[in-house]
């Protein structure tokens, strides 16, 4: 049994960054207010005191410029981490993410790569409204050359960040802003993680719930409630949505015969549509006893009102309701 300790999601990310920067002089971080301010969500906190302002580098409010500077530094021997304050602001940096970082390795015939790690918080739940609460993962997963990671707990947030820093190509990590202050049990040493390897969070036999980011936690809570009602739910966290650990999902679907796909992002053209298609195209389709079901955010901007905000993305009760229907009706 390995020793554990308690730390928040934000602390785990901070410790992983400190660990990486201590081990590798090529790693540095730049972003808005990451220095003395400590980051908009306090992720960097006092890192600049330990590592200096060269490596914990405050920038102007220039997302496109920062992202491009990350690309240029990555092309020339550094391992930059670019923090984008809210993932919504990636819209300001799209050219450098999509047209430059993602494509350079391919466009230049493999003679160079862009080992750039982008960290950005997504998701709703803080009352920050429509321009600070989106879940845009599907956009980025749609671009060949980008890897997209969505850690759902502190250990994954740290381990996947360390894995991303070892990857020769650009990796976008979409953290969840509601998780930053939550505490988790984490091992003394962050375990080695592989990008593209999902995780069975909880085993079950009646249905599979695939969920991402904060919805993993909600799905786990729902699974507890479902168990009390005699329904055994298996919860799967893909952890990286691209590359996707489809075999893990398919094996679970074949076992349970039912699948509920849960994401905070809007349903239309979302990541779970890809998972649904992957199941439908596979032999696991033949093991299904019920149609594939998706539970996603409403097709609307995230509203400001706390009641409306909660109502616009899947909550625990919604997952329980959908899972129960899936099992009882089929």
């Amino acid at each position: 049994m390995t020793a554990t300790r308690t730390m928040t999601y934000a602390e785990a990310i901070r410790e992983a960054m400190f660990q990486a920067m201590t081990a590798d002089p090529r790693v540095f971080l730049m972003g808005e207010d990451v220095g003395i301010y400590g980051g908009a969500f306090g992720v960097t906190n006092d890192l600049y005191e330990k590592l200096g302002t060269d490596r914990i580098r405050d920038t102007t409010i220039s997302e496109l410029g920062i992202m491009g500077a990350g690309v240029g530094a990555a092309l020339t021997g550094m391992r930059p981490i670019v923090e984008i304050q809210f993932s919504d602001f990636l819209c300001q940096a799209m050219d450098q993410v999509v047209n430059q970082a993602a494509k350079l390795h391919f466009m230049v015939g493999g003679q160079a790569s862009v080992p750039l790690v982008i960290r950005a918080p997504g998701g709703s739940g803080t009352g920050a409204a429509a321009q600070h609460s989106q879940s845009l993962e599907a956009w980025f997963a749609h671009v060949p050359g980008l890897k997209v990671v969505m850690p759902s707990d502190a250990t994954d947030a740290a381990s996947l960040l360390l894995a991303a820093l070892e990857d020769p190509n650009p990796v976008l990590i979409l953290e969840h802003k509601l998780l930053y202050k939550q505490s988790f049990e984490v091992p003394e040493v962050f375990p080695k993680a592989l990008l593209g390897q999902g995780r069975i969070v909880r085993e079950g036999t009646d249905l599979t719930i695939v969920a991402t980011s904060i919805e993993v936690q909600r799905a786990s809570e729902a699974a507890e409630l479902l168990a009390a009602d005699g329904i055994s739910a298996e919860v799967i966290d893909p952890r990286t949505i691209k590359p996707l650990d489809l075999p893990l999902i398919l094996a679970s679907v074949s076992k349970t015969g039912r699948v509920l796909l849960v994401q905070e992002a809007v349903k239309f053209n979302g990541f779970m549509s890809e998972v649904a298609a992957g199941i439908a195209e596979s032999p696991a389709f033949g093991d299904l006893q019920a149609p594939i079901r998706r539970l996603c955010g409403l097709d609307t901007p995230i509203p400001y009102s706390p009641q409306l905000e909660r109502a616009s993305v899947p909550q625990v009760a919604d997952i329980v309701r959908e899972a129960t229907a899936l099992v009882k009706e089929w």
Binding site: D54, G65, A69, M78, Q96
Partner: peptide
């Protein structure tokens, strides 16, 4: 991309400095 190289040049400069 028109203008695409400018931030990348800044990044190369930053890399040289670091």
């Amino acid at each position: 991309i028109v203008g695409g190289g400018l931030p990348i040049a800044a990044g190369a400069g930053l890399s040289n400095k670091l």
